[in-house]
């Protein structure tokens, strides 16, 4: 157990491209772990006025940005396309129109320069953001939390994924955004909720969806509805619940379920390392609690720094490096796959 023997050539140079949602990003990673550059252009300002990401607008921005961002990434890494061994790109899941820009740019680049092409799963990328921080060791469990995902993923070796559980309704980031909108916080609501949660007290008893005793699945829609009902009832009584209290109570429920289920999976599968992945891994409350629990149990743990938790191309290049060594290449027919599965 532990090391699966796969070695990534130290000189391997991968250009990563990521356009699955509202971030246009390109990165150069050496040896699968060393970030030479990681350029991220966020469109958050463009989507703010719409209260969420508008797919058509995201796609339009990606086309305008993509070659510029790639050039920046190469320049910052002080390399040229001739130094690059392969182009790795997010093929899914994500917004189809947004993914298409990255996929077609990567194909054009690979063809023009005669380089191999690698199609990367976005969630594999999020997990591999951890590899950029600390060498992954196996078996490991990854808690993937983002605006589109809530999953527990078990890995026995590099590049192999088994989903132990996933959300049955809203993704955790989605629940955060919805509750944030209900209490009138600006988009994107997650970070605001996290901040408020630290200022308030979790004094309202909100439900925890444990589901069946042996299930590693999640459910957050009931919690979201319960927040709305609680607010509504208070209003009927002419009371006002401070938004800090709502945020803190909501966050307490979310973290309780996430951490408890994660630790149950750690025990059942005898994993030796826990890694956090996805945009919600930037949540301070979650980071603090997971760190605490892992320390108590002496469990190895990695949490990527904030910039590697949100969407970025370095994580795609990192996951792509492993695929390169395994010979998992794509051809000219590579396409955007909005519903791509992780276990393949």
């Amino acid at each position: 157990m532990g090391d699966d023997g796969m070695k990534i050539n130290e000189e391997l140079m991968i250009l990563g491209i990521e356009t699955s949602c509202d971030e246009t990003s390109a990165s150069v990673v050496r040896g699968g772990r060393e970030i030479l550059s990681n350029v991220v252009s966020s469109q958050i300002e463009s989507h703010k006025r719409f209260g969420g990401v508008v797919p058509e607008i995201a796609s339009r921005h990606h086309v305008e940005q993509v070659t510029y961002i790639i050039e920046q990434a190469l320049r910052e890494a002080e390399v040229t396309m001739d130094d690059v061994d392969a182009v790795a790109v997010t093929e899914g899941p994500g917004l189809v129109g947004a993914l298409l820009v990255g996929v077609n740019a990567a194909k054009a680049l690979a063809f023009a320069k005669g380089k191999p092409l690698i199609g990367v799963h976005h969630i594999a990328g999020h997990i591999y953001a951890n590899h950029l921080v600390e060498e992954l060791t196996f078996p490991l469990l990854s808690l993937v939390v983002s605006g589109g995902h809530t999953e527990l993923v078990l890995m026995d070796e590099h590049g192999k994924y088994e989903i132990l559980g996933e959300t049955r309704d809203d993704a955790v980031g989605e629940a955060y955004d919805k509750v944030a909108r209900t209490i009138g916080l600006p988009y994107p609501g997650g970070p605001h909720m996290d901040r408020l949660a630290h200022e308030g007290e979790a004094s309202i008893e909100l439900p925890r969806a444990w589901l069946e005793a042996d299930s590693f699945d999640f459910s957050f829609s009931g919690l979201k509805s319960s927040v709305i009902t609680t607010l509504h009832n208070a209003k009927q009584r002419g009371e006002e619940i401070p938004e800090e209290t709502i945020a803190a109570s909501f966050q307490a429920s979310v973290i309780d379920v996430l951490v408890t289920k994660t630790m149950r999976a750690v025990e059942k599968h005898g994993v030796e390392r826990l890694v956090l992945a996805g945009g919600v891994a930037a949540n301070k409350g979650l980071r603090a609690r997971i760190s605490e629990v892992c320390e108590e149990r002496g469990l190895k743990m990695t949490i990527p720094p904030l910039a590697l938790c949100t969407d970025n191309a370095a994580m795609i290049a990192a996951a792509g490096s492993v695929m390169y060594e395994k010979g998992q290449f794509a051809d000219d027919r590579l396409n955007a796959q909005p519903g791509l599965e992780l276990e393949r």
Partner: peptide, 13 residues
């Protein structure tokens, strides 16, 4: 977008 992305990326490369 597919044509423009492909064309501009090839041209840049």
């Amino acid at each position: 977008r597919i044509g423009v992305t492909t064309g501009k990326t090839m041209a840049w490369a």
